[in-house]
Design a protein around this nucleic acid. Structure first.
Lengths: 337, 337
DNA sequence: ATGAAAGCGCTAACAG
DNA sequence: CTGTTAGCGCTTTCAT
């Protein structure tokens, strides 16, 4: 049995109230008694029981992270960012991953959030229904989204439309006019709007340059490498002539495309230019030109805002659109013809 | 304010004790009252307060996962596996990531584990000190390691030595005799033994075939892609002739090597065969020959054993060495000469 | 089958 | 500066 606050109080010959104050560094404890209590606590190996203090205070000192997956680049990185920030504040992180299945979402909000299991929530790349939002609001759980805009709550993210536009513009600037598009599905991503935003950015860039998007060079993927290679195969096997460049809505798909191009003996960038978005951990190694975003920072910023809000600064939570940046590496060049 | 058990009791005109039994599905409640209570609870939106039940029972219904990182393939996948299993049992997952820094480890065991914050722990790819082990034992927290053997506790893992040996043997079988070795550091990995085991396996395979390992083809990395490309550069820039094949202790390093080889105009497998270990999510797309292991399953198995143990089956936790398997894709072939 | 009551271990007034 | 005293919301004997 671990030592309880009563054990410490007894050993230090004070009341539990004083122990509580001393341990938590509250005022109204003389330096002498505080020192004695701390010493006693130390050698009894006393640590306050979280459930008891939670019950008494209503604060759990843990924040939840809700993600569609835990095992993909963006999510892993942002989780790490959140964790890093929480560590500073001695908060814990409760992870809810949907494992890719939307149905795992049912009941999550009622069961885990109604009753204070967490003090705040960060939602990764997921939209929230009006119901879910209402639930959170009712329980007064501060909330911030990460990875894309979410109607009804603040979020930290890049401007996905501008990012896609910048990537496409880079291709245009190089002189490309025949540009393919490998993008995400519209519905698969759990109602998330990011695929749509990136597609819009791509189309906007073309439009501004007076270039017509070509439906036969438009291929749908799901943001993963494997899908990138499959989509690439569809592109390469199509009846029409090949584009001279492809804009991929994610680096993972871009990398898949690179693998497939390489397998078919196409040279990148001589025969085909490729640009992605993300700056995935593999992109530098592969030399992929891309638009960089830093999910670790996104996660950390979200956690920071939440910590501030919980610390009593109202208005700490706000929308944050962080800058993205084009990183030109070796998969893009001027078209040959 | 969310409804409490008293609200339900009042509304259903029974005592809180009965509500408690009814909600938890315990016997000694008549079908009629149970139905009434459930109905009332339902429309009051009642959910038991976790901290209150934890305080009363000593069980938290959450298990901890301790990892050196949250944002790398093996860890993300095993976390997902654990999560999947926990979801079945309505357990929560508290994530402790060290963010790559061993010092973040200090105090973790005292602060978070002494006082029941979690009912059990899974440790990913980390060795435990005698002190830490003693701590866990004293608090009676069931424990299982994942990803490698750990002295003093059960683990689920592949046989890393045999896996490395199989990968190397594949190269040998193809006729290679000049084999390079890209391996992990001995100390960096937070005292973890896996790098050592894989190195031993590599050397054992060579020895059995009477081949001498060549120090100039031995390069140290840290299991990441980026390090794979750096190590590759060192290998390619070295003064000595090139090996005809390289065994990489992780797919990430193998992929880095592939990227660098490609960049230098070397053809794989014609000029250089490459084999890795893991079957990383990128390996299929890249066509990398490798030894497959499935961290999602590892995590799920660990969680399963823990759930069983907590459910009262003693001896549910035991060592599990799961089979690995060679997957020949397109980065290995017979040497040309 | 149901209820009364004593905790679980801590915090938060309120007194002194 | 320190102690007393109610809770926080649930579970769990022990009665009935």
């Amino acid at each position: 049995m671990p030592a309880s606050i009563d054990d410490v109080a007894a050993a230090a010959q004070v009341s539990t109230a004083t122990v509580s104050r001393a341990i938590r560094g509250l005022p109204r404890v003389s330096p002498a008694t505080r020192a004695r209590i701390l010493a006693v606590a130390e050698d009894l190996g006393y640590v306050a029981s979280p459930s008891a203090s939670t019950l008494a205070t209503g604060r759990t000192r843990t924040i939840g992270v809700l993600a569609p997956f835990a095992d993909r680049w963006y999510f892993g990185r942002s989780i790490e960012g959140v964790e890093r920030e929480l560590r500073e504040h001695s908060y814990n992180l409760l992870l809810f991953s949907l494992g890719g299945y939307a149905r795992n979402r049912e009941g999550l909000f009622n069961h885990n959030l109604v009753r204070k299991q967490i003090d705040a929530l960060v939602v990764l790349c997921l939209s929230l229904s009006a119901d879910e939002l209402a639930h959170l609001h009712r329980t007064e759980i501060p909330l911030v989204a990460v990875g894309g805009p979410v109607a009804g709550c603040s979020s930290v993210r890049i401007d996905d439309g501008m990012a896609a536009e910048a990537a496409t513009q880079h291709l245009l600037d190089l002189g490309h006019r025949d540009i393919g598009h490998l993008h995400g599905g519209s519905e698969d991503e759990m109602n998330f709007t990011v695929p749509r935003l990136r597609t819009d950015g791509f189309e906007a860039a073309l439009r501004k340059s007076g270039v017509q998007p070509r439906p036969e060079w438009d291929v749908e993927g799901d943001y993963t490498v494997l899908n990138g290679v499959r989509a690439a195969a569809r592109l390469f096997d199509g009846p029409s002539p090949m584009p001279t460049a492809v804009f991929c809505a994610s680096d993972e798909m871009a990398l898949g495309l690179m693998f497939e191009a390489h397998r078919r003996g196409l040279r990148v960038p001589e025969d085909l230019s490729i640009v992605g978005i993300d700056d995935h951990e593999f992109s530098e190694a592969a030399g992929l030109t891309t638009i960089r975003q830093d999910p670790t920072e996104h996660g950390a910023m979200a956690a920071q805002m939440l910590m501030a809000e919980l610390a009593g600064m109202p208005g700490a939570i706000r929308d944050r659109v962080v800058p993205h940046r084009l990183i030109v590496r070796s998969t893009t060049a001027a078209p040959r013809r």
